[in-house]
Amino acid sequence: MRRRGGDDGGLELGTSAVAVLVVALVAAIGLELLHGSRLSIAKFGWSFWTGRDWDPVSGEFGALPFIWGTFYSSLLALLVAAPVGVGIAVFTTDVVPPRFRRPLAFLAELLAAVPSIVYGLWGIFVLVPVVRGLETVVSRTPLRKLPLFSGPPYGLGMLSAGLILALMVIPYVSSVSREVLQAVPVAQREAAYALGATRWEAIRAALHYGRTGILGAVFLGFGRAFGETMAVTMVIGNNPQLSASLFAPQYSMAAVIANEFSEATGDLYLHALTEIGLVLFVITLLVNAASRLLIWSVQRGPGRVSDGVPAPETIPPARAGEAA
């Protein structure tokens, strides 16, 4: 090892103590969530996650509607955010003239700088009326017979929640996809062009090369959407029901915690809410780990062309917008 001389051990002792603290914090959060939900775990077991009734008054707690709402809204968000985010990444790496690339990418990433509460405010007063208008139009057509478009057009509901989540997730998908595309060796695209590929065909080759990383970017977006609280709480309608309809007011895991935690009376109620938090914690942990693995594999994976192309910047730990 270098730098042995003059090492009094003090630095290692002091900083490692703090380092241990940070690691212990993660464990403490997990344990505290487990401890805080023990009554609910003991009483309901797995049936907590299959029960459809959420009735604090009678002490009946089934979390299925919240799981449903969270998955539904997150997947809906990704359905929009994945193509849009990748599209932005492609546009700002391959299409637009170089001097516009950074400013455009910066603008798109500004979406990540807007606080969740501001999205919610805008959602209530701007997005929801627009969505309600849209829903009214759709429910006058025969489309209303489909389960997807059934029910009255409230505006507040799954569609608004999915759209606002999509907006919030786009910058994460786009900034990571952008870095993945930049990490694709230049030779990859040059080879495509040399074979007579059109611009899109060359881009497709690059996208194909970086597909694992792009998938990682989408996973990352999913992790974000999954735990997002305020904006969803404000527009999803807060009604615990299992409905396939985009128009129906529904509920999400994070939203029920935000709404009911400070007013929860009784230990069982509090423990039930904490158990929902515990599952949020575990799922986001798994999703983030998966996305990190996927993004890393693009950089470490085999098939990297060593052709004197300068090493791409390493991909930072996935916080879009903040580098801005």
Partner: peptide, 15 residues
């Protein structure tokens, strides 16, 4: 640990 903390939903940190 830092990556994990970074990804935890803020509402869970509140709990």
């Amino acid at each position: 640990a830092a990556d994990v903390l970074n990804g935890i939903p803020s509402i869970v940190v509140g709990i």
